[in-house]
């Protein structure tokens, strides 16, 4: 494989690298979030142990950024990417060079340049130590890029977004919720939903937690709505779909994944998507209107502990889920699918 093709592969798979980074980042956040919320319980006490919990919480909630950058680089170029990734990630975070987004871009770049540097043919004398030296050069190059050229515009953009989001108030939050709900409901955890949730995670870096609250609230609407729909009117669904719904709604509650809806929606994508968009927009709008804030990007049951208003969260889920279920059943009713034929096909 030529360098050109491999380069193309790396950038074509940006999504894969990003998800790998997030996958390694989540445990860090979870530990940080867990200790952070324990520390809140012991606020009034003076004991040293609560201070320790607070410190661990702060570490977790701060250093998830470099961990993400490191493992984005790891995904691109394997182990040599980890060290430069950490350093670039910390650089982006500590020096006001774009925070989370800067670290993400930095992680991709440093991974790629380390990969390139390792490809360079060096004199035999250097060959054995090149594995150690290559990351040094890629770090040098990317740190300059991030610090002087890429970081400042990203930081500026984030600041603009931050000032804007702080100024829009409840009505503005509600319309932001509607827009995020639209993107969250449109492709079941695909590129649009991920853009929306990446944005929400990125602005937590600016101490803005409402977008993440919105993103967190709409996640479980599509799967739970579609599962509920199969129970409300079983006649409209095939046996496989009903069984799947019965066994998978619990995954949606425990782990909080939109993607669980995919098998239910796959047979009938247009009608289901219209329904999930409606449901997500309603939940999103309400979440924005009530300024629901989520302090840590976690999914599923752990979410309940990090909302500022857990009760509001549960209350706004219900209209979204109900809307999804009712709309999808209504659409399926006015234009019937041939259930018998589909069941026959499944048996074959």
């Amino acid at each position: 494989m030529g360098i050109g093709k491999e380069t193309k592969d790396i950038f074509k798979n940006t999504g894969l690298h990003f998800r790998t980074g997030v996958s390694y980042m989540l445990p860090v956040l979870l530990i940080g979030g867990f200790f952070g919320s324990i520390a809140v319980l012991g606020k009034t006490s003076d004991a040293e142990i609560w201070k320790l919990f607070k410190i661990i919480g702060d570490i977790g909630l701060k250093y998830f950024v470099p961990v993400m950058a490191a493992y984005v680089a790891f995904s691109i170029t394997d182990t040599p990417g980890i060290a430069p990734g950490f350093i670039i990630g910390i650089l982006a975070q500590e020096t006001d060079s774009g925070g989370y987004l800067g670290a993400l871009v930095g992680g991709i770049l440093v991974g790629y340049f380390t990969f390139l540097a390792l490809k360079v043919k060096v004199p035999e004398m250097l060959e054995s130590s090149w594995g150690m030296l290559a990351p040094v050069f890629s770090t040098l190059l990317v740190s300059i890029l991030i610090f002087f050229f890429i970081g400042p515009p990203i930081a500026h953009l984030m600041k603009t977004i931050s000032t804007y989001l702080q100024s829009i108030g409840n009505g503005g939050n509600a319309s932001m919720g509607a827009i995020m709900g639209f993107f969250g409901g449109i492709d079941y955890g695909g590129p649009f939903s991920k853009t929306q949730s990446t944005f929400a995670t990125a602005v937590t870096n600016l101490k803005l937690y409402t977008p993440l609250g919105i993103a967190g609230a709409i996640i479980t609407v599509p799967p739970l709505g579609l599962c509920l729909a199969t129970i409300l009117n079983p006649k409209l669904y095939t046996k496989t779909e009903k069984n799947y719904a019965k066994s998978s709604w619990i995954y949606a509650v425990v782990a909080g994944f939109t993607e669980i809806a995919i098998p239910l929606a796959a047979g009938d994508i247009i009608r289901c998507t219209i329904a999930t968009i409606c449901g997500c927009m309603i939940t999103g709008t309400l979440a924005g209107y009530f300024s629901l804030e989520l302090y840590t990007p976690v999914l599923g049951i752990p979410q309940w502990f990090f909302y500022n208003k857990p009760l509001v969260y549960l209350c706004i889920l219900i209209p979204g889920i109900l809307t999804t279920a009712l709309v999808v059943n209504f659409l399926k009713k006015i234009s019937k699918r041939n259930i018998e034929e589909m069941e026959k096909e499944e048996k074959d």
Binding site: V22, S248, A255
Partner: peptide
């Protein structure tokens, strides 16, 4: 392999 190793990897 999936993001959190909770739902997708198991289901697949």
């Amino acid at each position: 392999a999936c993001l959190a190793g909770v739902a997708h990897s198991k289901m697949a």
